[in-house]
């Protein structure tokens, strides 16, 4: 495990065998003819104070995982254990109380802020809804949080459309932060921003983590951002986890062929590295409505053997977990 994590520390968040299936309905009586297995039985733990990066290509179920953790989507099956409570079977009211500890930052800063509300109201609302502060106290906290994310109290009377993308994302972060949460799901928080702003927002997230001892689940498809911010990285493919390891190990010693291929597709800004080993995969990602038998990656894996078509490899290992019959060394 990463050096940040002390031995035998209790995880803050434990996802156990999480599944999210979307039914496919057909015909006039809407008969369910199958399921899109967006997330198909994944398990991982997140420890206090760390950043768990969640990567994978589009449609691999990483965002669905994030949304299922905060119950924006109700999971089909499995447990999400957060602070000793199983979020998957909490009632709506119990869940509502717990939401102060569990927040989410969205990808698109343009649709994540209500266009009809002033920034001051957007930020004060969570405090009022949970009765965490009153009157002047609210004012003070809103001013404070705006300063923390690099805006000023003069911005309070403005509407979201008067801000740039980066500023809006800061407001989104401030809104999640004002409840003083323990865990924040960052659902591709920088993908919609341009590169210079990405760095600003990533730095802000890093600073905030130190400041408030936050734990992040950082979902992204850009490997650069994930490498920069994560302590550990989880790689997903077709609704399943293929590898979990500390960031360094993932980048230097990937053990799953898919991880290796994903890394080789990542451009390196160094012309001398142009001739590095590149693996190009054939074909497309199979449909999550009808995933292949055995290892989900066997249809595209250059190292596939007969057993890969038959048996699903379990996620194995201690610090460096990998789900492959023939892990690379």
């Amino acid at each position: 495990m990463s050096p940040k994590i002390k031995e035998k520390q209790k995880p803050l968040l434990e996802v156990v065998n999480l599944k999210k299936y979307y039914p496919i309905k057909k015909g006039i009586i809407s008969k369910t003819v199958g399921h899109v297995k967006a997330v198909d039985g994944i398990s991982f733990s997140v420890y206090p104070g760390e950043t768990m990066g969640l990567v994978g290509e589009s449609g691999c179920g990483k965002s669905t995982t994030g949304r299922s953790i905060v119950r924006l989507d109700d999971p089909t099956d499995g447990d999400v254990i957060f602070q000793n409570k199983n979020l998957a079977n909490l009632s709506k009211n119990e869940m509502r109380k717990l939401r102060t500890d569990l927040q989410i930052i969205f990808q698109d800063p343009y649709s994540s802020l209500n266009p009809r509300k002033r920034i001051g109201d957007l930020l004060a609302e969570p405090l009022r809804a949970h009765k965490l502060a009153e009157g002047e106290e609210i004012e003070r906290k809103v001013n404070n949080i705006l300063e923390i994310v690099g805006l000023t109290k003069y911005h309070k009377s403005r509407y979201p459309h008067e801000f740039s993308g980066g500023q809006r994302q800061r407001i989104g972060i401030a809104r999640a932060l004002i409840l003083n949460p323990k865990l924040i799901i960052c659902d591709e928080p920088v993908s919609a921003l341009d590169v210079s702003i990405q760095a600003q927002v990533l730095n802000l997230l890093k600073d905030l983590q130190k400041e408030f001892n936050l734990t992040y689940v950082f979902i992204a498809h850009g490997l650069g951002a994930v490498k920069y911010i994560s302590d550990r990285i989880t790689v997903m493919y077709l609704g399943k986890i293929v590898e979990i390891a500390p960031t360094e190990e993932i980048f230097n010693q990937p053990r799953h062929p898919y991880t290796k291929i994903l890394l080789s597709a990542y451009p390196v800004p160094n012309p001398h590295m142009r001739n590095r080993e590149q693996i190009v995969v054939e074909g497309d990602v199979p449909s999550p409505a009808n995933p292949p038998k055995g290892c989900a990656f066997h249809t595209r894996c250059p190292f596939a053997q007969p057993i890969c078509r038959e048996k699903t490899p379990p996620l194995d290992g201690e610090n460096h977990q990998v789900a492959c019959h023939f892990p690379l060394t």
Partner: peptide, 26 residues
């Protein structure tokens, strides 16, 4: 389906508040 409504749910707002203060004004 807009993210600001999802954010309202994630922030723990009550359903009437979400419908009348966040959806209908828009």
């Amino acid at each position: 389906e807009m993210d600001y409504v999802k954010a309202g749910v994630a922030l723990g707002y009550s359903t009437p508040k979400i419908i009348f203060q966040h959806i209908l004004p828009n």
